[in-house]
């Protein structure tokens, strides 16, 4: 699917230049330069991810345009790429997934109350889906994001806004224990390929924290959250 669409994109400029060549050949005045080929205008989106938690910084957001596939499916096992992002905040494997046509990563950690704007564009003119994912870094494997939002028919100036809940990748037990949480609350381990939780993506039950009675937790009351945890706004700018 992806390969086919890339091919068709490549075809278009070459057909155009063939046409331009034909025009030039038919021209009466061979000294007149052929008109420069018109560059196709890419569809451009700005994706604004806002952190609306109290004390759960988000890892740099992964933003992808695709036609098939998805970063996750509810109640299905997480991909290793998703596990890597959800446990450690590293989105590079997600953005390298074969179904991703265009991928972009936010440049920075998104602090609570802050937002990041991630631009992304494509020459694809057909069906188009947009996905976003980011980790709540003061957790074992919580993430938030949107999966496969249909942006095919968004016109320039259109926007879509989502209030998004927290998911549990299901790949790491929610121990909240010292050394298991990569965010500033702990500075512990990120990705670990061992799967010691339910092994399917589901709604996150929230963190418990030491203040709420989990005696082995490195988290405190400030790290608790409820849904929604993020706002994601998609704006088509061009």
């Amino acid at each position: 699917m992806t390969i086919f669409s890339r091919k068709s994109n490549l075809l278009k400029p070459s057909l155009f230049s063939l046409f331009a060549l034909t025009l030039a050949a038919c021209s009466d005045d061979n000294d007149t330069p052929a008109p420069p080929p018109v560059q196709p205008i890419p569809k451009t989106f700005q994706v604004v991810v806002t952190n609306i938690t109290h004390n759960q910084p988000f890892s740099p957001a992964a933003v992808a345009l695709h036609q098939s596939g998805s970063f996750w499916q509810l109640n299905q096992a997480a991909s290793e790429a998703l596990e890597t992002m959800a446990e450690g905040g590293d989105n590079s494997a997600m953005l390298a997934e074969s179904f991703v046509m265009e991928g972009a990563s936010g440049g920075e950690i998104i602090m609570p109350g802050a937002e990041d704007v991630v631009p992304i564009q494509t020459l694809e003119t057909g069906e188009l889906y947009l996905s976003v994912a980011t980790m709540l870094v003061n957790t074992n494997d919580a993430f938030t994001g949107i999966s496969s939002v249909d942006v095919t028919n968004m016109a320039v100036g259109d926007s879509l806004t989502f209030r998004v809940t927290a998911y549990d990748a299901g790949t790491e037990g929610n121990s909240e224990a010292q050394g298991t949480i990569p965010g500033p609350a702990d500075g512990g381990e990120g990705f670990n390929s061992t799967r010691d939780d339910r092994d399917f993506v589901h709604r996150h039950p929230g963190v418990v924290s030491l203040d709420d009675g989990l005696t082995t937790s490195v988290l405190n009351q400030s790290h608790r959250f409820d849904n929604p945890v993020s706002t994601v706004r998609i704006l088509r700018t061009r």
Binding site: S175, R203, P205, V208, G213, L214, T216
Partner: peptide
């Protein structure tokens, strides 16, 4: 309001496990 739970399987206030049996809406 959700389960409170605790992390003590043989004592404590609750027989519910705070790491497993809590939830956030929707369910």
């Amino acid at each position: 309001r959700g389960n409170l739970g605790d992390d003590d399987a043989t004592a404590g206030k609750s027989d519910v496990d705070s790491r497993i049996h809590r939830w956030l809406n929707p369910v």
